[in-house]
Amino acid sequence: MHTHPLWRPYETPSMEEINAARLEVGAPASVPVEVVAPDPDWPKWYESVSDRIRGALGERALAIEHVGSTAVLGLWAKPLIDVDLTVADSADEDAWLPDLVAAGFVLRVREPEWEEHRLVRGTDPDSNVHIFSLGAQESQRVRMFRDWLRTHPEDRDACSTTTRRHGSSTTSTRRSSRPIPSMSTIHTHARTSVGDRRSERRPICATPCLCCTF
């Protein structure tokens, strides 16, 4: 039986456990990334995805949040909805995955070393649903950054400019540990301004707002 994550400290799995559990469907490839102007229908797309998740999981979906570039009014982005889904224990896939699969989602990523992150992909509309346990720092990070960009138009515009510039070229589907300076600066400024002194749990992607969330 899984111990509820609120009753145990986060323990980093061994490399053997990580390699045995890791899942990443599809080989990394260089693909063109489409970045488009803000679409007023993106909130409706999110509501469609959220309703599907809520219908599949009911009260097991402890929180469902629209995150990533499409969650910020006025921000250029790829036309894909990013969702942050909180469940009691993301590692306990039997408790939530079968019902999401039945609702049309497909498990694409399993990362035990990153707060037991899981990612399922949906279509119609295209969506990435990031699943974390209650209290995960990454969920707090992406929501904080989303709220910051919503209320700080100068940083939102800088983020949008960076996204458009790097989204016009070919990018890899695999995350990189080399953040783009301007995006890293904005994110650090946001974190320190709200008093978040925690270190990054994950490097910012090489092409921000394109491969997953921010």
Rank of each mutant, 00 (worst) to 15 (best):
E16Q: 06
V129D: 02
H4N: 13
S182H: 11
P5M: 03
L100P: 01
E138N: 06
V72L: 03
I204M: 14
V49N: 00
C211W: 11
D196T: 06
A27I: 06
S133I: 02
R118E: 00
S182D: 14
S176Q: 12
P13L: 00
P28H: 07
Q140C: 05
D155W: 07
D92N: 14
E59T: 14
S48V: 04
P153R: 09
A103K: 02
H152A: 09
R22E: 05
I64V: 15
I204D: 09
C205L: 07
W76N: 12
A103I: 06
W148I: 09
K78R: 13
E11C: 02
Y10Q: 05
V106S: 13
A95S: 15
E17T: 12
R143N: 09
R121H: 14
S139Q: 05
N128Q: 11
G122R: 02
L149T: 04
S168I: 09
R164P: 01
H152F: 11
L23R: 03
F214Q: 08
A56V: 05
E34V: 12
P112L: 14
V25F: 05
D126Y: 08
Q137A: 13
L149A: 06
R143W: 09
E47T: 12
A29V: 15
T192M: 12
G195A: 10
T163D: 03
T170Q: 13
C212D: 08
P79D: 05
V194I: 13
H152M: 08
C211H: 12
H130I: 06
M1C: 10
T3M: 12
P208K: 04
S184Q: 14
L75W: 01
R197V: 14
R165F: 10
S169T: 15
T163L: 11
T192Y: 14
T151H: 13
A20C: 04
S184G: 15
L23Y: 01
L149V: 10
W148T: 07
T86C: 09
A206H: 10
A91L: 07
P43N: 08
L100I: 07
D84R: 07
A158I: 02
D89T: 01
S48G: 14
S48P: 00
V25N: 07
D124G: 04
N128L: 11
E113F: 00
V33Y: 10
G68V: 01
I131T: 09
A29L: 11
S50H: 10
E111N: 11
S177H: 10
F145Y: 08
P43T: 04
R22C: 02
S139K: 03
P79A: 07
R165Y: 12
E11N: 02
H4F: 06
R52W: 04
H2F: 14
R165V: 12
H130L: 06
R52N: 11
R52T: 08
A37H: 05
A20E: 08
L75V: 04
P179M: 04
G68W: 00
R202N: 07
